[in-house]
């Protein structure tokens, strides 16, 4: 279970987050809704360890991880703009987290194939990420984050910038994917329909 407790973040003397608390149970998918500028992404960055909060704690399965570096948390993050590594192939991107965990090669290869199949990109292994379409890039980013089996997956508006059709299709796929892998997830979005499609529970973050 992921618990963020009383998180406060100040930028330039202004409270972006003021004592925000949130919990995500095992296998639960929670959507975080709210207008832009309300600090949704900031909260994700605090949970992922990319940002140090001014106050508050983050704990995972009862262990306080507030001061842990990101790479020790085993919390995945799907970035809004994917942040694929341009110098690596699709397979190189998907296998990155496994390499960081020193996964033996045969298992790494098998897992990468499994993930590519899961997101519908079998056969894309050696493609350069620069040549992917918007939807394909999002799928690769998702596969990359899921590959190391993170304890919790954070999704920062993972479907923005797609046309309506593709958006809806990917939203359904994503919901199925999270269910089938039993991944706990926290999804940031400003789209109510998307939240309803993907999440078990929705939280509104007001300014």
């Amino acid at each position: 279970m992921l618990e963020a407790h009383d998180i406060t973040v100040r930028f330039d003397e202004r409270n972006v987050l003021d004592r925000v608390s949130i919990t995500v149970a095992d296998g639960e998918v929670v959507a975080l809704l709210g207008p832009s500028g309300v600090g949704k992404s900031t909260l994700l960055r605090v949970i992922a360890g990319l940002l140090v909060a001014d106050a508050g704690t983050v704990s995972l399965d009862g262990v306080d991880i507030t001061r842990w570096a990101s790479h020790r948390r085993n919390i995945g993050l799907v970035f809004q703009d994917e942040q694929l590594f341009p110098h690596l192939t699709v397979a190189g991107n998907v296998g990155f987290g496994l390499r960081m965990r020193r996964t033996p090669h045969p298992e790494l290869h098998r897992r990468v194939q499994e993930l590519l199949a899961l997101v519908g990109l079998s056969g894309f292994d050696d493609r350069a990420v620069g040549g992917l379409s918007g939807g394909e890039a999002k799928r690769v980013a998702l596969a990359r984050s899921l590959a190391p089996r993170p304890r919790v997956l954070l999704l920062d508006e993972p479907l923005t910038g797609l046309d309506r059709d593709l958006h809806d299709r990917l939203a359904t796929d994503l919901a199925a994917l999270l269910r089938s892998t039993g991944t706990s997830a926290l999804l940031v979005t400003h789209d109510r329909d998307e939240a309803a499609t993907i999440a078990d529970r929705t939280i509104m973050l007001a300014s």
Partner: peptide, 17 residues
């Protein structure tokens, strides 16, 4: 972009890696 290093970090890369 700094986010590239962040992406590596959340995928389990230590600062050096």
């Amino acid at each position: 972009p700094a986010e590239q290093r962040n992406a590596a970090a959340v995928l389990g890369a230590s600062p050096w890696r």
